[in-house]
Amino acid sequence: MTCLPATSTPKKLGLVIDLDVCVGCHACVVSCKEWNTGGYGAALSDQDPYGADVSGTFLNRVHSFEVVPEGGEIVAERGQARLVHFPKSCLHCEDAPCVTVCPTGASYKRADDGIVLVDEDMCIGCGLCAWACAYGAREMDLAAGVMKKCTLCVDRIYNETLDEIDRVPSCVRTCPTNARHFGDFADPNSNVSIMVAERGGYDLMPEQGTRPVNKYLPPRPRTALGSAPTLPQEDTSDATGFFGWVDKMLDRI
């Protein structure tokens, strides 16, 4: 049923993405595609994979933005310019418009943990849910003709055949800089809730009224190079023997 759960879900599983830490390596993009092309539902197809016009279905993409400070025309001209790498996948919104527009009941938001999923056997591939999503989190798979989206690796996080350390979404497990974190936002003491509270985690496009579960942590203020402390003079007064002699000789030169 494509009506949203009537009450707030007891668990709100989602991701925190730390924009201060992400280096834009696209490892999460690759690992997401690798896991999800063989897991839940239809494979993530590519079109013209070895040709010039290659494109394909991805559930997670990394954009890179340049942020030009006020008054600047080009990056780094004035103030502290930033290059921010920006991973983006489904935000598992509480008021998910992609779910309510679905005419077939293929899209749904799970009442127990809030994960937004597509039942691909019911999807007619009309594409309306992708239109309804302001974040571009849904992509039509052109080979299977069904809508694909981030499942929060629902086939990993509850999978007891995996080691406990692996029971997180593939993107989180693979991130080499720990820019992605998985947890329950309904629990105020969870790792993700604490991170959001401490770092000022925020919603993307709050004006769209979708109430995303996933949160983004802003880049930390940058320290200017000039204000970095200089290294203290090293104290070598306790050097003895050969190294003491070398130290004295080099000081004289």
Binding site: F65, V67, V68, P69, G72, R82, V84, F86, M205, P219
Partner: peptide
Amino acid sequence: SATGLGGLGKVRLF
């Protein structure tokens, strides 16, 4: 608003 980076300045795709 899409990136939440408006506090830092003007955002454009790099």
